[in-house]
Design a binder for these strands. Structure first.
Length: 200
DNA sequence: CAGATGATGTTCT
DNA sequence: GAACATCATCTGC
């Protein structure tokens, strides 16, 4: 069963867009080569959500979340990590979907080289393979997404873009990871049984 | 295996 | 000062 058009998916509120983005593909063209992966884990953040960066209204850092859907919201955290979100919902409404894990599709060796200091040879061991992109900051590093990608349109044919995929068979809905406020809200979604999910 | 902890810089109280 | 949408590495079972 094919996915809805991406523009339709991201126009929904984050709580609906988050599961709908599972199975879609994220693609990045770079000088080094192309990397891509299937989105297997997401979290929804909305303006009325205490845990969201958009809670309380727009500030400089979160401006893009209040713009039209389908753009990249990238933030820096813990002094060393970047994370990547897809802006969702209507303009003027601060929302986004955090992409928490990818299943590599192409450019696996390049992704592994970016993640690990030493150049790994394919095939990777299972431990190394899963570790390439099973976390929000890990996939950003593997895909070489940077703050320069903040605010790019992911729906057009740019260097960083989304592509519709197939609807996953089973989706699990549960609580989000690494937050204190609204910790009980079931706003995390992942593809059941997928080995690249960051945690169960 | 689980749990604790340090790294490191921006944002919040 | 403390918290933070994290990760790698350490300790102890």
């Amino acid at each position: 069963m094919p996915k809805l058009a991406l523009a339709t998916i991201v126009a929904q509120d984050a709580i609906d867009a988050a599961p709908a983005l599972l199975g879609c593909k994220l693609i990045h063209d770079s000088q080094e080569g192309t990397t891509s992966g299937i989105i297997v884990e997401t979290e929804a953040y909305s303006q009325d959500d205490e845990a969201s960066h958009s809670f309380g209204g727009p500030i400089a850092r979160t401006q893009v979340m209040f713009g039209p859907p389908g753009y990249a919201y990238i933030y820096f955290t813990y002094g060393m990590h970047y994370c990547f979100n897809v802006v969702t919902g209507g303009e003027g409404n601060g929302q986004g979907v955090l992409i928490r894990a990818l299943e590599p599709v192409s450019g696996l060796e390049l992704m592994a080289r970016r993640r690990f200091a030493t150049a790994k040879q394919l095939p990777l061991l299972d431990k190394q393979l899963h570790d390439v992109s099973n976390g929000p900051a890990k996939l950003v590093q593997a895909m070489a997404i940077t703050k320069a990608d903040y605010g790019v349109n992911l729906l057009i044919n740019g260097r960083l873009r989304l592509e519709a995929g197939t609807v996953p068979k089973h989706i699990v809905q549960t609580t989000r990871v690494g937050i204190r406020r609204a910790a009980d809200a079931p706003r995390r979604f992942y593809i059941a049984g997928n080995p690249f999910v960051s945690r169960r």
